[in-house]
């Protein structure tokens, strides 16, 4: 692996399958696939339903609400790219719709995060094509989508 990949934050590289998800996040929307045949909500994006194998999937804008299934506070950066963020909260959020995803909790101090805490999606726009899906404690003011400004 190159020096550059270690130094820079590894950003999503959208594929033919995942591009709508990342573009949605850039536009402030959390998009999940939903199977038209069996109704399953699917994350991460796939070409077919992992429960019934149907290819008929549609994009569905999720509520953005969920709760912290579990989390940790990263105190030593995995790679130099994350050194400036330390300490940061890495979490698994369970969405209202069912799927769980790996994300960061922003908008509060790491000590304030709790298991089962209600959270709401917030977005970090990186380009027209890519945004990161982050979460903040639910019920707080959400006028800013800039996680850097909240820490």
């Amino acid at each position: 692996m190159s020096e550059r990949e270690v130094q820079e934050r590894p950003l999503p590289r959208p594929t033919r399958i995942s591009a709508p998800f990342w573009r949605g996040a850039a536009e402030g929307k959390l998009l999940l696939q939903r199977c038209r045949r069996c109704g399953l909500f699917i994350y991460y994006p796939r070409p077919f339903c992992p429960r019934c194998l149907a290819e008929e999937l549609e994009w569905h804008e999720a509520s953005g609400r969920g709760r912290v299934y579990t989390y940790t506070v990263v105190r030593r950066a995995a790679t130099p790219a994350f050194a400036a963020m330390v300490p940061y909260v890495l979490a698994i959020v369970e969405l209202e719709e069912g799927p769980r995803l790996v994300t960061n909790i922003v908008g509060c101090r790491p000590e304030e995060v709790r298991v089962e805490m209600p959270v709401r999606a917030t977005f970090e726009r990186l380009s027209d094509e890519v945004g990161l899906v982050l979460f903040r404690p639910d019920g707080m003011e959400t006028d800013s989508a800039d996680p850097e400004g909240q820490q």
Binding site: R13, T70, V74, R76, A77, V102, N104, L132
Partner: peptide, 22 residues
């Protein structure tokens, strides 16, 4: 790499930390 690494997981360390937390 696409859906986890952008959020800064620490290899297996963070995965097991989240198990311990839960």
């Amino acid at each position: 790499p696409e859906f986890e690494r952008p959020y800064g997981p620490m290899g297996a360390n963070s995965g097991y930390a989240m198990i311990a937390m839960r």
